[in-house]
Nucleic acid binder design. Structure first.
Lengths: 214, 214
DNA sequence: CATTTTCTGGACTGGCGAGTTCTGTTTCTT
DNA sequence: AAGAAACAGAACTCGCCAGTCCAGAAAATG
């Protein structure tokens, strides 16, 4: 999709996407002004329309690329096999903290608000965000849960279900709070870790193997 | 705020709010068309502006009244004192099902999407929704948790924290899924109950009194 | 009944903004 | 260097829409 183009075109293309990110995330889809966006990109209006066709086309392209980009890198996150209950616990906490920290970013939170607000106008974009976000995260975590179940560290007949509950134990409160209270009072590192530690404690109380959790 | 007015005025006022609900929930704040809204309310445009001053005024009034209305009635929900672990469990499941069912309503979900999408334009509205929604629900639940702790059914040094985790165990997946996947594939009654049952099982594994949960 | 207030219906204003067009100018390609 | 493609810049079109205005009807009030 980005091959076979002149390098200057590619540079312009990404300048446009940068400007689009700023404007759309700030003002929403309908609120965004193409003239301002154009000025901000340092490129002419004609060029914007030559590249993306329309406001809608640019919006779709921006959101899908941000969505894809945000998922990559985070979900290759690994979880080392533990050799003690304490190692299991702290590995899960580390994992949870990484996931939570990745999501609790102003950029990502604003993207999420934007897509939720436009769910009825752009249902496919919302679906893509769901799949590349929560679903992908749960899938990756389910893989780890299944492995830990086989190794005898966890008792989880339904690894996907267990992963889902752990995911929302961790994400539920902070993400939904941020959706409504803004990006200003996000938890600091210590707060996030304490939250994840308690989430993992709850998860292990329900799914930890009895003979190891004491 | 609604006193001292002629009864016909009150009727018109609520006709306007009804139309506003339809239009704003469908098209969003910027997408809503005041002419269509007016036609739908069966009232003249001047009357709309006489009552609410502006599009923004009408929007704020609508959202605050919907938010307040949705909270009332649900959060007076009681939770009977149990006389056995099984009673405790099933009382919590019933409670969770009621809460979840109340939130998983197209009307309420659309309101939530709308307010999240407008968080940067109307931060106060988002704050009010947070307070009348999750915060109020957690507060009410925390009261029950504290009582159950005193009665020896639960071990929860921090009832509010425990209530928060239970709340998002129940709400996390379904609500956030609905935010992004729309109102079409909401869980049926059986699915919601099964989900709540597992959420409560997890909660009790972590916070249930040892000598009673076996 | 007379008066005052509220309402209707529809025309009107003014501004905004997506997308187009046009005339050059730059920048790759060969 | 010559031709082709992409680009700048700025004016321009055209539809949409929040909010106003006005003449007359309807309803409440005393």
């Amino acid at each position: 999709m980005t091959d076979g183009l002149r390098p200057s075109s590619l540079r312009k293309r990404s300048a446009i996407l940068d400007a689009a990110e700023q404007v759309f995330l700030r003002d929403g889809y309908l609120g965004a002004n193409m003239d301002e966006l154009t000025a901000l990109s340092g490129v002419s209006k004609q060029t914007v329309y030559a590249h993306f066709g329309s406001k809608e086309g640019l919006f779709v392209e921006l959101v899908t690329s941000m969505t894809r980009g945000a998922g990559d890198g985070v979900h290759t996150d690994d979880l080392p096999d533990p050799s003690s209950p304490e190692e299991l616990r702290s590995a899960l906490v580390d994992y949870a903290v990484r996931q939570l920290t990745a999501v609790l970013t102003p950029r990502i939170l604003r993207l999420r608000r934007l897509v939720i607000g436009e769910e009825s106008r752009f249902p496919e974009l919302a679906r893509v965000l769901w799949q590349n976000g929560p679903e992908r995260a749960v899938e990756a975590l389910a893989g780890h849960v299944a492995r830990l179940d086989e190794l005898g560290w966890l008792v989880a007949a339904d690894p996907r279900g267990a992963a889902t509950y752990l995911n929302w134990l961790v994400m539920g409160e902070p993400v939904n709070r941020a959706m409504l209270l803004g990006d200003e009072d996000l938890p600091d590192a210590a707060g996030a870790r304490a939250h994840c530690a308690e989430a993992v404690r709850i998860f292990l109380a329900a799914y930890g193997a009895r003979d190891q959790t004491g």
